[in-house]
């Protein structure tokens, strides 16, 4: 009886995905008259290649370290050292990812062949780590709130779901107006609330707040979706259990701890997996609101996969990213599954 479902998934998801895996080992382009060639792991090493180098501060004629006004040593530009220099052939084409000063005498620089992808990777993980638990918790809170027997509760139930009903593309457009740095709604409200003390901030234009702004919006947008899933889980808990708890004189906290939460086990697993997957797939908000900027602060894995596969016509590179994403999420799911396994 699983056959129709599995058969359709096999043809329309698994088969094309194997196709994508195969593409990741080739130089296939979206548009090209050139024949496709097998290039082994080249796509993977282009994405994941990293290198480390150390540079010395600049010294004046007497060998003293040149320092700037603040007393910090001045370092030469990395490009002047490695660009076009055969001694650094192994680092050619790499860019600085991050660096730190080991001592006053040297700076260690970690380079990546594809800094943008590395940033996308870090941003996506950050997004998942923050958004998944916050969203799951808020959604559960809302579901509990909405699961009471109150007159007119179905009105609220509908309202909380509203942001999900409106397409994410639309919601993202709207939030661009809200976050606007000049006279956006958020700035105007904060300014009014603080009696003009708050002078406004370019939320999406500042690399330090752009990702946070997108997180807040994403949580707000999808929390109703997960509320509905929690709700359907809550509904499976038999009312007789609650009645029994009430008779026993259990407090609200105790009822939640001993009746509600155990009854939500399967739902919790579902929610956790669904939220994690959705967070990893972060794309539309980025596409509409920031295009990955400012300065790559909102690059994500799927955005990069699409940007390369379609925008830069590098379909094999895009496929490679999706294979890496698949492996990454699979690993995380296995860990999750292990941690939340049924203890018997």
């Amino acid at each position: 009886m699983a056959l129709p479902g599995f058969g359709l998934i096999a043809i329309f998801i698994i088969l094309p995905f194997f196709f994508a895996i195969a593409l990741s080992f080739t130089n296939q382009r979206l548009i090209s008259p050139n024949p496709t060639q097998f290039i082994g792991m080249a796509n993977y090493s282009r994405l994941l290649g990293v290198g480390v180098t150390t540079i010395q501060p600049e010294r004046d004629d007497e060998g003293e370290i040149i320092r700037n006004a603040a007393g910090a040593p001045e370092y030469p530009r990395l490009r002047t050292i490695i660009r076009g220099n055969p001694d650094f052939a192994n680092l050619a084409g790499m860019r600085e990812w991050f660096s730190w000063e080991r001592s006053d005498e040297a700076r260690t620089i970690v380079l990546a062949r594809d800094v943008v992808f590395m940033k996308a990777l870090v941003n996506t993980l950050l997004f998942v780590i923050i958004v998944a638990p916050v969203q799951a918790t808020l959604a559960l809170g809302l579901a509990l709130l909405i699961n009471q027997r109150l007159r007119g509760i179905s009105f609220y139930r509908a309202v909380y779901f509203m942001p999900v009903v409106v397409s994410i593309v639309v919601v993202s457009l709207l939030w661009r107006f809200i976050y606007d740095g000049n006279n956006g709604l958020l700035n105007n409200m904060l300014s009014a609330l603080t009696f003009g003390w708050f002078e406004g901030h370019d939320w999406l234009g500042d690399p330090s707040t752009a990702l946070g702004a997108i997180m807040v919006m994403s949580i707000w947008q999808a929390v109703g979706f997960h509320m509905v899933i929690w709700l359907s889980g809550l509904q499976t808990i038999s009312p007789t259990l609650y009645e029994a708890a009430a008779i026993e004189g259990a407090s609200k906290a105790q009822t939640f701890r001993y009746v509600t939460w155990p009854g939500l086990r399967n739902t919790a697993v579902l929610i956790l997996i669904v939220i994690t997957m959705q967070a990893f797939a972060l794309f539309a908000q980025i596409d509409v609101m920031t295009n990955g900027g400012p300065r790559d602060s909102t690059q994500t894995i799927v955005f990069q996969a699409v940007e390369r596969g379609y925008g830069r016509q590098d379909i094999s590179g895009g496929s490679t990213i999706s294979v890496l994403l698949f492996l990454l999420v699979l690993t995380i799911s296995l860990i999750q599954g292990f941690l939340t396994r049924e203890k018997t």
């Binding site: 990395l78 860019r95 600085e96 295009n291 990955g292 400012p294 790559d296 830069r312």
Partner: peptide, 22 residues
């Protein structure tokens, strides 16, 4: 596409030489 990203990054304060090299 590459040029577009470089201009956006530079406008947002990225190092000019490094961005253009990239």
């Amino acid at each position: 596409k590459v040029f577009e990203k470089a201009l956006a990054d530079i406008a947002n304060g990225a190092d000019v030489a490094d961005t253009l090299d990239a």
